[in-house]
């Protein structure tokens, strides 16, 4: 299960066997991860209205239905609105706070950080229920504003982490250099710090957007019919129908997400953002 190349070169059969066994396990795990996506892909093209295997006839009609079903298109639109606001607000709030977190010490810093990162460990159903009760207490209705505030709170830790990691990797001497060359703090921020943070800001925003768009559990609590997001609409669909429309929609979902992540990986280095690669 160690370095495959080294093992293959090695003459020792035992080690080679070990490498083969290790990689077999790895590929089995990969298969386990991919299996549902593949199965969904196959059933999306199944002509029959009842989920069954293997499909007897093929069709693309479920894709057509997925696009024409009103709850889905509305959910998609609502999701875009909520995601656009939530991820952008989270970016501004999270980036500013990450900067303060990295650079300054101030009163209440630890407490603020603890509260803002707590959604990472607090169950989403708890957060959803909390905002629902909060809305009831202040006699607010389940509007877009409520969903957006809830999503901002949920995705904020991810934005903060992404920007914080970029800030940490940013050499603070660059800012000192700018200061020694006569740049006031504001100009140093705009000419040196911000330009160098753009990848981190963008990836933070992208993660926030993807997570917000796909958030389900908390959204189920805080959305109403008029503000229902796509995942909520999909959940409601499964409860009513058993046809492969949702499979078709899932295929689109999987393809778009994988594409977005591949692009993000190519441009930003997902490994660094997720901290699974040793930077420098």
């Amino acid at each position: 299960m160690s370095d495959p190349r080294k093992r293959l070169i090695s003459a020792k059969a035992g080690e080679r066997l070990l490498a083969i066994a290790g990689w077999t396990v790895v590929w089995l795990v990969v298969a386990f991860i991919i299996l549902p996506a593949v199965v969904v892909g196959i059933s999306a093209f199944n002509d029959r209205a009842i989920l069954s295997f293997p499909p007897q006839a093929w069709s693309t009609r479920w894709f057509a239905r997925a696009f024409s079903y009103r709850d889905f298109s509305e959910g998609f639109r609502n999701g875009l609105i909520i995601t656009a606001f939530a991820s952008s607000i989270a970016l501004v709030v999270g980036a500013g706070f990450a900067f303060a977190l990295d650079r300054y010490s101030f009163r209440g810093k630890m407490a603020l950080e603890a509260v803002l990162t707590s959604p990472l460990v607090i169950p989403h159903f708890t957060i959803g229920l909390g905002f629902l009760i909060l809305a009831a207490q202040i006699h607010a209705t389940r509007t877009f504003a409520l969903v957006i505030v809830c999503h901002v709170v949920l995705v904020l830790p991810f934005v903060m982490r992404s920007v914080y990691v970029s800030l940490r990797n940013l050499d603070s001497r660059l800012e000192l250099a700018a200061a020694s060359l006569g740049a006031r703090p504001g100009r140093a921020l705009f000419t040196v710090t911000l330009p160098l943070l753009i990848p981190g800001l963008f990836s933070g925003w992208l993660f926030a957007a993807i997570l917000s768009f796909n958030e389900f559990t908390a959204s189920l609590f805080v959305t109403a019919q008029a503000t229902q997001t796509l995942p909520v609409a999909m959940y409601n669909y499964v409860r009513e129908y058993a046809d492969p429309t949702l499979a078709a929609l899932s295929v689109i979902y999987i393809v778009v997400t994988a594409l977005l992540l591949t692009i993000a990986n190519a441009f930003l280095g997902l490994g660094k953002v997720l901290n699974v690669e040793h930077v420098r």
């Binding site: 549902p36 993807i210 995942p231 999987i254 990986n265």
Partner: peptide
């Protein structure tokens, strides 16, 4: 990396629905 991480971004509904079919 992408194989391992993509499911994270799909959301629970899509993933769970896939498992219903499986």
């Amino acid at each position: 990396l992408i194989t391992a991480v993509t499911p994270l971004f799909l959301g629970e509904v899509v993933r769970t629905y896939s498992w219903i079919i499986v």
